[in-house]
Simulated assay, not measured.
Amino acid sequence: MASGVQVADEVCRIFHDMKVRKCSTPEEIRKRKKAVVFFVSADKNCIIVEEGKEILIGDVGVTITDPFKHFVGLLPEKDCCYALYDASFEKTKESRKEKLIFFGFCFLFF
């Protein structure tokens, strides 16, 4: 049974852009998202992107030194959200791996 919550077109576009790695110009690569946080709208009907809750590839190493730490800082202190994070890591000394990780985040009130 579906929840009835819709997903905004912008969320689908962002997911597709992060998932599909295509040849791009250096400027397009800098504008690509490293991480983004999604929220349920105030009327509880749609999953949306909140302005400023993202990390761009071009910011990593320039204004953001630790992208994952910065990403964790984007998560809400007392709310729930969804997030996508484009993780890259060394599998071996010769190869780098990239994975798109989907998070469902819920702050528990105690």
Rank of each mutant, 00 (worst) to 15 (best):
M1Y: 14
A2S: 15
G4D: 08
G4N: 08
V5M: 14
Q6Y: 11
V7Y: 06
V7M: 14
V7S: 13
A8L: 04
A8D: 15
V11T: 04
H16P: 01
H16L: 12
H16G: 08
D17I: 05
D17W: 06
D17E: 15
M18L: 14
K19T: 14
V20F: 09
V20M: 12
R21P: 02
R21L: 15
K22V: 13
C23I: 11
C23S: 10
T25S: 13
P26S: 00
P26F: 00
P26V: 00
E27S: 15
E28M: 12
E28Q: 15
I29R: 11
R30N: 14
K31E: 12
K31F: 03
R32Y: 09
K33W: 10
K34W: 05
A35C: 13
V36D: 05
V36S: 02
V36Y: 04
V37C: 10
V37S: 05
V37I: 15
F38H: 09
F39R: 05
V40R: 11
V40D: 06
A42P: 11
N45M: 14
I47N: 03
I47P: 08
I48Y: 01
V49H: 06
E50L: 09
E51D: 10
G52H: 09
K53W: 00
E54H: 11
I55N: 08
D59P: 05
D59W: 03
D59I: 02
V60D: 01
G61W: 06
V62W: 02
I64G: 05
I64R: 05
T65D: 08
T65Y: 00
D66C: 07
P67I: 02
P67C: 04
P67Q: 03
P67N: 05
P67R: 00
F68S: 00
F68T: 00
F68G: 00
K69R: 09
H70L: 02
H70D: 12
H70P: 03
F71V: 01
F71R: 01
L74K: 03
L74I: 04
P76S: 01
P76R: 00
K78Q: 01
D79F: 06
D79L: 00
C81N: 08
Y82W: 10
A83K: 02
L84D: 02
A87R: 07
E90R: 08
E90L: 13
E90K: 06
E90V: 02
E94G: 04
E94Q: 06
R96G: 07
R96M: 10
R96P: 01
R96S: 11
K97R: 09
E98A: 07
K99Q: 14
L100C: 09
L100D: 07
L100N: 09
L100I: 11
I101Y: 13
G104S: 15
F105Q: 06
C106G: 15
C106E: 13
L108Y: 11
F109G: 02
F109W: 03
F109T: 02
F109I: 04
F110L: 02
F110K: 00
F110Y: 04
